[in-house]
Design a protein around this nucleic acid. Structure first.
Length: 550
DNA sequence: GAGCACTGC
């Protein structure tokens, strides 16, 4: 074990929650200690270890957050960044911050672990190799040969007509064989996982009823499952049962589910995507760097510098939201509170102003609904597809998708969160449970910030106005040519066919939550607004002269 | 009438 002369903690950052939790479990198991004990623990959002374990596994955002109260990470003597080859936004930001910290704390040990051969680039980044004095270099490259866990893989040699069916059959075959060990099946999406789980459960029930000894314990695993259900895969199956986990690729990398020795395999695509930081919106990341006291974002050393224009527009939006002042300083309390939310700043702004509009109950619901994939299921069979469409109409309103979501949620709550309600209305029950979880967390945060939790009781205009206070950068107007355009930049946008506004006469002004770039630029999750509201509620961003339409 | 999935705070 780690001895006393090792003064601080060892922090290991993983890009995904399940990875952090499963590694902590694994290491605790190997060292014969309890997870979340003194030696080994983990911290992910909403589920942190209470003590300070010697080895702490966490998601990247957690370490970033810890830096807000402990900027030099003094409680750690070593930090490991794992899976760096994935180059998530947070990996890059953490590497930039660690470089700064290392200058002030040369005794801190940093291990950067990557599965690919980008070592040279990272080596140069941490060594300041542009400087002439190489003797000051402190980074070294260590190579570790990969070691595989003994796992039996099953490939199908030929294409199979239905691989969901086939994987279920394979699992059943393994289950009847003499070999012991748990089974992990990978499929491509949530729907497939649910289908496979249903099939397997039928078999499992039959086995139990026939009182055979090959009992199975079936568990699904995918991202939009409520958190407490995700954690079930890490527990061992009851005595006498073989655990069968059916997963999407949530679990594909860096996850070790204890006991798994059989894997179904789907080929992984070559990892060639450029770092997230150079192609994504930086509003939230810049907000967090500001919260860490990085005053000059444009001078911050990123391993892969994002386009300056992206940084500038992030700063401009944060200013217009009121999160930073004219000097680029985080505002108190608004900017600091916005940095605390694990949400797009446009959404956290809407939440924080919802008390003033007397509609925080409704806004909490809407923002929570936006955190999950669509709750409407899309049956593939014809007659059910028509029925689903008819049921969805019952919730639809002319104000747009967001108020429609509000109606769905309220219906779900009135039904006492019944599965029957979801079934009848073609709504995903598990997603709705997750929305309920998220909503109660956000509500707690609003209460902490003394935002009154109040309902406007059906005054949808107040809700729509409140949405403008944060979503104003996402406003579009109907051009006389019949397509929508952004107010700034005149970019052509189209209503997505999934929107409730798709089939009704096009309103003059809308807010969108997201743009999807597929065959065209499609706006999703729309709300109808009035142009006056933009002038009234976002004067920094829109002036009367900005566009003739005003 | 569109259309891969997944993740993180």
């Amino acid at each position: 074990m780690i001895e006393a002369e090792w003064p601080g903690q060892i922090g290991v950052c993983e890009p995904r929650r399940v990875a952090a939790i499963s590694l902590a479990n694994r290491v605790a198991d190997e060292t014969g200690t309890l997870v979340q004990g003194e030696a080994v623990g983990y911290a992910v959002k909403f589920d942190a270890c209470a003590n300070k374990p010697k080895i702490k596994y966490m998601t990247e955002g957690i370490l970033l957050r810890e830096m807000m109260s402990d900027p030099l990470l003094k409680s750690y003597s070593a930090i490991m960044l794992d899976e760096v080859h994935e180059r998530t936004l947070y990996t890059d930001i953490l590497m930039g911050l660690m470089k700064k910290i290392l200058r002030k704390r040369p005794e801190l040990r940093l291990v950067v672990a990557s599965a690919t051969m980008d070592a040279k680039e990272l080596y140069e980044f941490f060594n300041n190799s542009h400087m002439r004095d190489k003797s000051k270099d402190t980074a070294v490259i260590l190579s570790v040969k990969g070691r595989q866990f003994p796992v039996n893989m099953f490939y199908t040699m030929e294409p199979v007509p239905c691989y969901v069916q086939k994987s279920v059959e394979t699992a059943l075959k393994i289950n009847l064989s003499k070999e012991s060990g748990d089974i992990l099946i990978f499929l491509t999406g949530q729907e497939e996982v649910d289908r496979a789980v249903r099939l397997l459960k039928e078999h499992a029930t039959n086995i139990e009823q026939a009182d055979k000894k090959e009992k199975m314990f079936i568990l699904p695993m995918y991202g939009s499952l409520p958190y407490h259900e995700q954690l079930k895969v890490f527990k061992s199956a009851p005595d006498g049962y073989r655990k069968v986990v059916v997963a999407t690729n949530v679990a594909e990398t860096s996850v070790t589910i204890p006991g798994i020795v059989h894997e179904d395999y789907l080929p992984k695509l070559a990892d060639s995507t450029p770092p997230e930081i150079i192609r994504t919106k930086l509003t939230y990341a810049v907000l967090q760097l500001k919260a860490l006291g990085i005053s000059n974002i444009l001078k911050f050393k990123f391993p892969s510098p994002p386009p300056v224009q992206n940084l500038r527009s992030a700063l401009e939006i944060l200013y217009a939201l009121g999160a930073i002042d004219i000097n680029g300083e985080l505002t108190k309390p608004l900017g600091f509170h916005m940095a605390e939310f694990a949400l797009d700043p446009l959404y956290s702004k809407v939440l924080l102003s919802s008390g003033d509009f007397g509609c925080s109950e409704e806004i909490l619901t809407i923002i929570s609904m936006l955190q999950v994939e669509t709750v409407f299921t899309k049956p593939s069979s014809g007659s059910f597809a028509v029925k689903a469409r008819i049921q969805k109409r019952l919730f639809e309103v002319e104000e747009g998708d967001l108020i429609t979501y509000l109606n769905v949620f309220n219906g779900f709550i009135s039904s006492e969160m019944s599965q029957g309600f979801c079934h009848k209305n073609f709504i995903n029950y598990k997603s709705m449970r997750r929305v309920v979880e998220i909503r109660s967390r956000l509500e707690k945060m609003l209460k902490n910030y003394d935002v009154p939790i109040v309902s406007c009781g059906g005054l949808t205009e107040m809700i729509c106005k409140c949405l403008v206070t944060g979503l104003f950068p996402n406003a579009a107007y109907l051009h006389y040519s019949g397509v929508y355009k952004t107010v700034r930049g005149d970019i052509e946008l189209f209503v997505h066919p999934d929107s409730v506004l798709y089939t009704i006469p096009q309103p003059q002004w809308v807010l969108f939550c997201e743009v999807m770039h597929t065959t065209k630029l499609f706006m999703r999750d729309l709300t109808v607004i009035k142009s006056d509201w933009l002038l009234e509620l976002a004067p920094h961003f829109y002036h009367k002269t900005t566009h003739k339409e005003f």
